[in-house]
Amino acid sequence: MSAVITASGLSKRYKSALALDNVSFQIEPGRIVGLIGPNGAGKTTALKAILGLTDFDGSLNVLGYDPRKQRDKLMGEVCFIADVAVLPRWIKVRQAVDFVANVHPRFNRAKCEAFLARTKLQPEQRVRQMSKGMIVQLHLALVMAIDARLLILDEPTLGLDILYRKQFYQNLLEDYFDENKTIIVTTHQVEEVEHILTDLMFIRDGRIVLDADMDTVGDRFIEVMVGADKAEATRALKPLDERQVFGKSIFLFDGADRATLEQLGEIRRPSVSDLFVATMKGTYA
């Protein structure tokens, strides 16, 4: 199957800064890709380019369309949730469902109503009367009822409490995702998505600094915990990062020999957030 997104030489310059710097990547169908980077790294710009919301240099193909020229067609097969606060505040649940049902050819009304029935949302309730968590429930119910090939989530759970956050990703996995769909998600709450991701992309200063699937990440990156006596020897192997916990040192290695490390101490798979922190070291300095 051909790629869902193919980007090559993607660049975007705002007045003062380079938001995307000659970025190239490819995303295959049936993946859940985490696009992760510090504030201002270019995540949102990349998503906007994919959605045809902004102009850019380079070439980009999304589901066979050029998002600059064929945006109207593209949006028939792409959904996105920008963040929690973008549903119009005046709209009622009933109106939102009616509207999307009548303008979106791939919307399944029964499905949407089934999702809504699991929430406390009332048909006559307006968005302005809802909590952030309820707004996201409504938005998710609308989006999950659309049979789209690509779903883009930009900080979808920002400002939600843990119950809503967990439920959000659980709904996506159980009721929405399948091998024909692709999800791209950006978030700062890395711990909550790392178990559902199939692919990881780190972006820093407009460049992609890591682009790998989770299995590769597990093979490439190894964390080893060593006592003070072996710390010097480990340091000589040029770790990516080092931190101290309870008098022991934890070293993070990229592509080191597993057998060698096993002799130095206890090895384990690093969490995505530790990997992220190590990779992005010095970003704000």
Binding site: L53, F80, V86, P88, R89, H139
Partner: peptide
């Protein structure tokens, strides 16, 4: 809708 950012919702629908 640009000010309250709901344009991002309207623009997520296949409407020219």
């Amino acid at each position: 809708d640009r000010r309250d950012r709901s344009i991002l919702f309207w623009k997520s629908l296949p409407i020219s």
